[in-house]
Amino acid sequence: MGWISLFAFFLEEAWVNLRRHLVASLATVSTVALTVGLWTSFTSASKGLETLLAWEGKKLTELRVGLKLWVKEEQAKQVVEKVQKLPFVEQVRFVHKNEALKQMERAYGNAVPFQELIGHNPLPHSLEVVCRSPEWVTQCQKVLKTFPEVDWIGHHPEAVERFLAIVNGVKVTGAALSLVLALVAFALIHNDIQITVYGRRNEIRIMQLVGATAWTVRGPLIMEGVLYGIFGSLLAVAILGSLMRILSERVPTGFAQGLLHACQLDSMTVMTVLGLGLLLAGTSALIASIRLVRVV
């Protein structure tokens, strides 16, 4: 049994079919590309947003905790140890009140000599707490509020919630759109295979008469689906890659540029796109071929 010959036969026959109904094939390849491309865009976007969060979004996971004025340096360091033990806390830094004053002077300019104006440093010791992820920030705040040494907690929880809502929205929209498009691609591939089975009825009849097994008859049809998957995925990668390049040249620096940078197509993403396209198109063709080519 020449397996290589059989594979070459499948490939050759599939290629002939693909060219035979070129317009339908192009429509199918485009739909596969759109499905896989959209899925990848949404997945990359949500991943990019999360990566951005990891880069700049430290602010979103960061809490500034002001201690009460009566808390001495030693007591503050004990608080640091307690906070450090909380499971959702990644990092805690003690900020001495003198350092806090210097930070304030830097922020408002040295033109205002705060200490001289008031005569003493009025600021309390404070902590910089970094949570493990934005989801933990609210919980962390609740726990820290129960500490008697804590006076106030500086944070904007609505920013975190808004950010998380955006990430989730991107994920859900992407999943829903991809699902709808996957169904469309599935139907189109099924339809293409049906056209092929009709167009190839003589070949199929001859194959059955000369003793081709059911899987040999189905082979070219499945291969046709695989080719749709490969071409669709490659098209998706090409379009996404070009789009990224164009956008990164035109989008001004800042958040959008950072997001684009975080969404770059790496080799892992390209492999995933190829795998997805193959899985989608190959499975559709497999099911269609089993339904349409019966063992006679």
Binding site: M1, G2, S5, N202, E203, I206, V210, G211
Partner: peptide, 26 residues
């Protein structure tokens, strides 16, 4: 007769070999 119109005589005959898994070297 069921010949494949877009294939040559040789290819029509070889088609039976391909479909039954015979190596193309044959």
């Amino acid at each position: 007769i069921l010949l494949l119109p877009e294939r040559t005589v040789w290819e029509n005959v070889a088609f039976a070999l391909r479909a039954t898994g015979v190596a193309s070297s044959e």
